[in-house]
Design a protein around this nucleic acid. Sequence first.
DNA 1: GCCATCTTGGAACGTTCGTTCCAAGATAAT
DNA 2: ATTATCTTGGAACGAACGTTCCAAGATGGC
Lengths: 205, 205
Amino acid sequence: MADVKHFDPDATLDTVMRLFWRQGVATTGVQDVVDATGLSRSSLYATFGGKQELYRAALEHYVRERSRPLLGRLEEDDRGLPAVGEFFAALIERRCTGEFARWGCMVSNAHAGGENGSPAVRAVLDRQHRYLRAALHTALVSAQRQGQLAEGADPDSAADVLALLAHGVNLRSRAGADARELRATVTAAIAAFAAPAAPAARSGP
Amino acid sequence: MADVKHFDPDATLDTVMRLFWRQGVATTGVQDVVDATGLSRSSLYATFGGKQELYRAALEHYVRERSRPLLGRLEEDDRGLPAVGEFFAALIERRCTGEFARWGCMVSNAHAGGENGSPAVRAVLDRQHRYLRAALHTALVSAQRQGQLAEGADPDSAADVLALLAHGVNLRSRAGADARELRATVTAAIAAFAAPAAPAARSGP
DNA sequence: GCCATCTTGGAACGTTCGTTCCAAGATAAT
DNA sequence: ATTATCTTGGAACGAACGTTCCAAGATGGC
């Protein structure tokens, strides 16, 4: 009794996400979206509403498809500090190599844009930051339970620090920071919260 | 033999800086600049060139007037970790209260913009990051010299970590992060590199 | 096959964009 | 006072902006 969409909205959202992610929303025109998706303005506006709503949808698509999976892996990895280290290693890998190298993180980028004033967008940023912190916290509690944390370190503070550090990694990677350098930095940060190295074969008899 | 400018370019640059700092360059029109400065387009273009060059000039004005003084203070404070703590305290104060609350840092913001591709802008970002890292490094070397650093900590890695952390503070403050929370976080980060607390009056006889 | 309903292409809307241009105004040296 | 030179206000430019609109096309239930 009616026509059906001639395209896949989710695939479109993925294309749009890349546009906004790389260039930012303010420097991306609706014409760019039309060109990249092959859709007409009619279809875009009928499906997603205006540009701002399209941006929000793309941002949430990013969170769903790019951020959450990585954080989910961290959350379910109960090895403690090795899990945290692996999370950051994967993050840096994504930020510095492959298709999305030097794009930064779409959520971190959104913090700096002139459009973070939109309450809807702001809510996404806060929610995602809380989730990032929570995932790190979970891993750090695991670490503490396994005696991997230094005596003075507590998982709450450490989670806060590492969450801010992740934003720093995201920002600097967009400016072309060296992957090796970033890896060394996060390794040092994690080590700062770790218990002194196990006295394995250090002090002989 | 000629007319002279009827305005102070440096004061104008300060006004323009605030505009770009708060709203970002892409969401700020030349008309906004005209309205805020009271100048005509002729004067603006004759003095600064186009919008992109005006942005770059405003960004360098920011670095000169806002970033460098704070980092200079840190560089010349040889107390070690207390100097680092005071630097971050002052940073957070500026980011969360007063005229510029929730504006973030213009340099950090520039990382995320779609216009960081300009080599000139990119150069400013790299230079400023290096300077931030160097100032922290200087303070941390002082700290180490005074025995304030933990055994495993080295000033180079710690400077890298804290420099990225500063970007994180800048980003999150723009999204409205709580000052008290940020203070606690940076305090924990610094503490992670510090030597164990002096056994002052802890374990009584 | 037909109709009701939704989608699509593409033209068109008024606004704002960054930039250019020129006549009028201001200045300092002569 | 005159002149040469620079600055200024403000109009004007074409291009691009986000959005709206409608006729034509496509679809599924009858």
